[in-house]
């Protein structure tokens, strides 16, 4: 499994939870951290489980998530990345 990392732009996040629902590894969850618009933002509660598949970012309606992946695996296409 490649190692990945998600970076959530907390001011863009509206806490809709679509990324939480779509993540195959339970990396993300809504936090008790509220942004300046009053939304409870998403955070990586299990960052160690992230593979950098980017399904969360592909699903995010507010383009609030950027995804990084270890260099060795970065050539793997993210589009259409399937569930494990």
């Amino acid at each position: 499994m490649p190692k990945g990392k998600v970076v959530v732009d907390r001011e863009r996040c509206k806490g809709c939870g679509l990324c939480v629902a779509v993540c195959p590894f339970g990396v993300l969850d809504l936090s008790k951290d509220y942004n300046s618009s009053g939304y409870a933002v998403v955070t990586a509660v299990h960052p160690e489980a992230c593979t950098g598949c980017a399904l969360c970012a592909q699903t995010c309606p507010d383009v609030a998530i950027e995804v990084y992946r270890e260099k060795a695996a970065a050539g793997t296409p993210t589009r259409g990345a399937g569930r494990p």
Binding site: K5, G52, A57, R69, E70, K71
Partner: peptide, 15 residues
Amino acid sequence: MPEAETMVKVFARPT
């Protein structure tokens, strides 16, 4: 932020 040497961005905001 991830360390630049080991991680690359695989999903970015469209330009």
